[in-house]
Design a protein around this nucleic acid. Structure first.
Length: 442
RNA sequence: GCGGGAGUAGCUCAAUUUGGUUAGAGCGCUUCCCUGUCACGGAAGAGGUUGCGGGUUCAAGUCCCGUCUCUCGCGCCA
């Protein structure tokens, strides 16, 4: 019989249907066995009544078994209805069960509170929880919202390379890979150079590559491999045009999540983010004055970023705040220096609920200036000859951003550690399983 | 890389302060009972080289040293 999705059972009252899914929970009462069955669309209670031909199978089945169930969709007796729950008014009277795949007994209850490392070491199982499923459905919606917003604004998506011949940023730690003929190649730390090249081709582009940072960071916000939501746009007036586009993208991302998953914020004990008419903008030095810290520091410390976000929420009703005009020394070679504010750049970070989720700015588009900036940072223009062709042959004024998808997801859903917003996080000692750092692994 | 906290049953944790007999609980697991449960309930049972190595002591989960791992903060960054 054709499969009916669990989420659509309400339209089949009185009919005999076949569902396929997992056993979420089994409640054995002896003569009577109850199940919760789960598929991608929802959950429904199944009841195996005394004398049912499915009783023998029902006694063998355990949580997470994959089953095909034939049953009759009944309206629940009024006293047994579960108000407010999906399919709370119906249940499936089980007439037959076929085990498609058995499951070992679980190492822990699927909904148990787990330590982070237990959770991460068992992701194929722990991702099946309601929260696990929700996080990555939300993440898919975030990317969908990002794509929709930028396509509407005339951007073209492209695929950036992961394997590169040099370190674009000249600072971030890179992973080295063996290439042909005893050569070394690197995993990209950013699609930056390729985005800029593509501005010379398509004018407005975006890409969502995996990027790699070998930084030995052990924090709640760093990953060795993460997804970077990048865009780059030509013919801008200055960095504020980029900020305007970023605002539109962020609104689109949040709207997509809120429209498709309205219940998700409550599930994670948070609320939809506050985005006012205009996200507040402060220069770095203004931010430092607001916080009462030295304006000589080239950057905000994490503690200050958290405090500034509290300020933005209190004073502007915003969960986001832009910080602009970081000093030239703190920014990569391609960053545009502000003629009106020498020593400082037309660059910005976007902070969201306490942490930096985006860096961006206007880029240098003049070939000679760019070569000079490279030299000033101790980089060899010869090694960037490929990239520099884009500037040699005519590049419009342009700028763009890179946003950490996992950081955005984590802040949106109030997840304490960015690894929870990463399907399969790579960190110092773990790529799915713990890596042995000793001859006698534990 | 630096600093704080932690590692005890499959999972989540007690027992460590003040060293002292067979290291406990809840959940899960096994067996049995249960006709309306929805985290079902009830009874019984199995399950531990206390991360690893060394030291002090009559005696170490507990104190000391080393080491590995986890976790949080910092550096750095998205």
């Amino acid at each position: 019989m054709e499969r009916t999705l669990i989420g659509e059972l309400g339209a089949h009252k009185g009919e005999t249907v076949t569902i396929k899914g997992w056993v979420d929970v089994r409640r054995d009462q002896g003569k009577l066995v109850f199940f919760d069955f789960r598929d991608r669309s929802g959950v429904v209670q199944g009841v195996v009544l005394p004398g049912s031909p499915a009783m023998e199978a029902a006694k063998e089945i355990r949580n997470e078994f994959v089953v095909e169930v034939e049953g009759k969709v009944n309206t629940r007796p009024e006293k047994n209805a579960q108000a407010g729950k999906v399919n709370g008014d119906i249940e499936l009277e089980v007439l037959g069960i076929t085990v498609l795949s058995p499951a070992d007994s679980l190492p822990f209850e699927v909904d148990a509170e787990l330590n982070l490392d237990t959770y991460l070491n068992n992701l194929p199982l722990t991702l099946r929880t309601e929260k696990g499923r929700s996080i990555f459905r939300v993440q898919a919606a975030i990317i969908e919202g990002y794509r929709k917003a930028l396509r509407t604004l005339g951007f073209t998506e492209f695929q950036a390379p992961a394997l590169v011949g040099g370190d674009a940023e000249g600072g971030a730690g890179t992973f080295t890979v063996d290439y042909y003929y005893d050569q070394k190649a690197f995993l990209a730390t950013s699609p930056q150079l390729y985005k800029q090249i593509m501005v010379g081709v398509l004018e407005r582009v975006f890409t969502t590559p995996k990027v790699f940072r070998g930084e030995k960071s052990a924090t709640t916000r760093h990953l060795s491999e993460y997804s970077s939501l990048d865009f780059e746009m030509g013919f801008i007036k200055d960095h504020t045009d980029v900020m305007t586009t970023l605002e539109a993208a962020v609104r689109g991302m949040v709207a997509q999540v809120t429209e498709t998953h309205p219940q998700v914020y409550a599930l994670f004990g948070t609320e939809a983010p506050l985005i006012p008419e205009k996200i507040p903008v402060v220069k770095l030095r203004e931010a430092q004055q607001i916080l009462g810290v030295s304006t000589d520091e080239p950057d905000l410390e994490p503690e200050h970023e958290r405090a500034l976000c509290e300020w933005a929420k209190k004073e502007h009703g915003s969960d986001f705040v832009f910080v602009t005009h970081y000093p030239v020394s703190k920014r990569p070679f391609y960053t545009y220096e502000d003629e009106q504010d020498p020593g400082f750049t037309k660059s910005f970070d976007l902070l969201f609920r306490g942490i930096e989720i985006t860096s961006g700015g206007q880029r240098v588009h003049n070939y000679e200036v760019l070569v000079e900036k490279m030299r000033a940072k101790g980089l060899d223009p010869e090694k960037f000859a490929f990239y520099l062709q884009a500037f040699k042959y005519g590049m419009p004024p342009h700028g763009g951003i890179g946003m950490g998808l996992e950081r955005f997801t984590a802040r949106l859903l109030n997840l304490p550690n960015v690894k929870e917003a990463t399907l399969f996080p790579r960190d110092l000692n773990r790529i799915d399983v713990l890596l042995s750092t000793d001859e006698t692994p534990n």
